[in-house]
């Protein structure tokens, strides 16, 4: 009886703990939405408080976004464009490399794989200055080529695709060869479709990375019309007070699509993000 009571109490407290934690976690998002409904003058004067004053709150900030002349949707479009192109290219090249490393045995294979692991450990930030000089020399500064090209092969994705490709049925490979398929044809027509789940997970990971990417685009992109959302938002920040009316409603519109997509494709998000170290 006593033991039963004990487990009941711990059950309740553990669940309460998680409920509380979830509320705390979701609180900043609630704040974001709340702030987007308040006039920026009030935010500047009083900061964000929890007062739900219906007389002051309105959708004016959103209306302001949609009225012509705001650069916000330009940034949104840029972010979206970059996301699509960079995700598609990165997935294609990374899957190719990962597949090559998994399926064939050839000289230098182990060295290449170690290099993949090594790159995963060395952050880009260390060499961003020469990399920036290079983009200047190649005349790809302030262009999306400059943002995408240096990272077109993502080591994390190569690693993941390699792990996945190790489990592909080798018998298919042989029978396709007998049928006269080229090696690349085998990859494109037979193996790629088999790697669909890996593509799902990596697509989400890369797309999220691109959507939230900050430092490198901040360095490469120079003109306002080329900015992506995070860079655009950051350009509106200043130590002395911010252009809140565009910033906050814009932030809400940038976050909500991802959360909706997440709720639909949770499995892919989670396997993509936790894939790195755990056997695929």
């Amino acid at each position: 009886m006593n033991k039963k009571q004990n487990t009941a109490i711990s059950k309740v407290s553990v669940n309460m703990l998680f409920i509380l934690l979830c509320l705390v976690t979701l609180f900043p998002l609630f704040c974001l939405v709340l702030a987007s409904l308040k006039p920026s003058t009030e935010l500047l004067r009083f900061g964000l408080n929890m007062k739900l004053d219906v007389h002051v709150m309105s959708f004016k900030n959103y209306a302001y976004l949609f009225q012509g002349g705001s650069i916000y949707f330009e940034w949104f479009k840029n972010s979206l464009l970059l996301l699509v192109i960079s995700t598609a290219l990165t997935l294609f090249f990374s899957s190719m490399v990962g597949y090559g490393l998994a399926v064939y045995s050839f000289k230098g294979k182990n060295v290449l794989f170690l290099l993949v692991l090594f790159i995963m450990m060395v952050p880009l930030e260390i060499m961003m200055l020469p990399l920036f000089k290079m983009t200047v020399a190649l005349k790809i500064v302030d262009s999306y080529t400059g943002v995408i090209l240096p990272f077109i092969v993502a080591p994390v994705a190569v690693f993941f695709f390699r792990q996945y490709a190790l489990g592909l049925p080798k018998a298919l490979l042989e029978s396709a060869r007998v049928d006269g398929c080229t090696e690349f044809g085998i990859f494109l027509r037979i193996m790629m479709p088999l790697m669909k789940p890996a593509f799902g997970a990596m697509a989400i990971l890369q797309a999220m990375g691109s959507w939230n990417n900050f430092l490198w685009p901040l360095i490469v992109l120079r003109s306002k019309e080329m900015f992506t959302l995070p860079i655009g938002f950051a350009s509106l920040l200043s130590p002395y007070g911010n252009n809140y009316d565009l910033l906050i409603s814009g932030a809400v519109l940038a976050v909500i699509p991802i959360i909706i997509i997440f709720l639909f494709f949770q499995k892919y998000f989670i396997s993509g993000l936790t894939s790195g170290g755990i056997k695929g």
């Binding site: 976690t25 935010l43 939230n212 910033l247 932030a251 976050v255 949770q266």
Partner: peptide
């Protein structure tokens, strides 16, 4: 619980930072 705790990472640091500045 898993989903709720995962959601923050979906927001960019910049957007999350803007909210933290307000709070």
């Amino acid at each position: 619980f898993k989903s709720a705790l995962f959601i923050p990472v979906l927001t960019s640091t910049i957007i999350a930072g803007i909210v933290f500045r307000l709070i």
